[in-house]
Design a protein around this nucleic acid. Sequence first.
DNA 1: CTTTTGTTTAACAATTTTGTCAAATCCAGC
DNA 2: GCTGGATTTGACAAAATTGTTAAACAAAAG
Lengths: 195, 195
Amino acid sequence: MTTRDTGTEQLIKDTAKRIFFSEGKLHATTQDIADAAGVNRTLLNYYFRTRDVLFEQVATEARTEMSAVMDSVFSAELKFKEKIHQLITVFMDQAMKYPYREMYVVTELNRGDKAIPEEKKTRLKAFLKEISAEMEKGEIKKMDPRQFCMNLFALMAYPLITNCLNKSLYNIGDAEYLKLMKERKQLIFEMIYQC
Amino acid sequence: MTTRDTGTEQLIKDTAKRIFFSEGKLHATTQDIADAAGVNRTLLNYYFRTRDVLFEQVATEARTEMSAVMDSVFSAELKFKEKIHQLITVFMDQAMKYPYREMYVVTELNRGDKAIPEEKKTRLKAFLKEISAEMEKGEIKKMDPRQFCMNLFALMAYPLITNCLNKSLYNIGDAEYLKLMKERKQLIFEMIYQC
DNA sequence: CTTTTGTTTAACAATTTTGTCAAATCCAGC
DNA sequence: GCTGGATTTGACAAAATTGTTAAACAAAAG
């Protein structure tokens, strides 16, 4: 017989993602997630058997989505400058929806010893080479390409992770915060490029 | 009778800090902490009564230490440029010891609703004004001073938070990582200043 | 309408984590 | 040595979180 697909399974996963990656509640319990999704907690066990399976599935999808987004940029046939521009746009849009997703991946790394797939490392190496080439051409300031990468991702990700803190510190609301983040896209580009 | 002070209380707190802020195990259990400290778990209850008290105490001390470090820079009588230089040195040294401390404070903000003390906000405002003044003088590139702040802290904190990820991604060991972070101090200074 | 099968629920069991208590231990002061 | 209070420990209780099961429910197929 065909599965009836009431959409509950997806609802649970989406809710878990929202709680983990948008709201940053990294220690949410299965009951928390069930409540937020408006379903009986037993359903989490019905669909995923155990809490760990759900968490793992969500984490895996997070990594996959992240990779897909990155791939779309890295494998595109674009000039370097355009690629950076694209990367900032795409990454920040993602990070604005799921500010804590990266952080989740990092903390996962910190306990279980998940390895980074070789494939990603080679892709990164290619990108580092591109960066070096641009530096040779004098397009961007010379430095360790790894530092360049760290700078880029730091500038993009950090303010979104510290969302809450910043809003409170600078006394700004949702609307203005959004505006600031939009401005940031351009700002980061200039910062990275003019140095 | 006078307290015997076997140093156990401090040992427990220090161990908790190490686990939380250095190792990034934000979900450590009381047993984990007791084991890491090499003491009986009951002692955590003896000295702190409940888990929450211990956590709160550790978090409070973290905030206090952080503030003290920041104060020492912000309230110093220094030229702006020297102040930034000092800030980078001090902040990064701290962040290298306790990379996840800030993150801990942020995630704490995300569930309980801790407010930021007014005093800190006023100090920040003063700093933002200083930044604006420097921009007027043409010492640093003009932008929203809040963006300047976000840039600065992002460049300092993020690579340390993603410590594990970076080591794995770039295939680097502890020694080289340390070297990279040292280089970063100078790099960040130039980046902030020459834009 | 009945059956069949996937879905949902409530009650319960198991596990994990935290808290309590009394007894044992240790050490300063007598 | 003995005493008294602080410290430490192990056994146990309580609470919180997770997992299981059987039964109720809902919808498609016959």
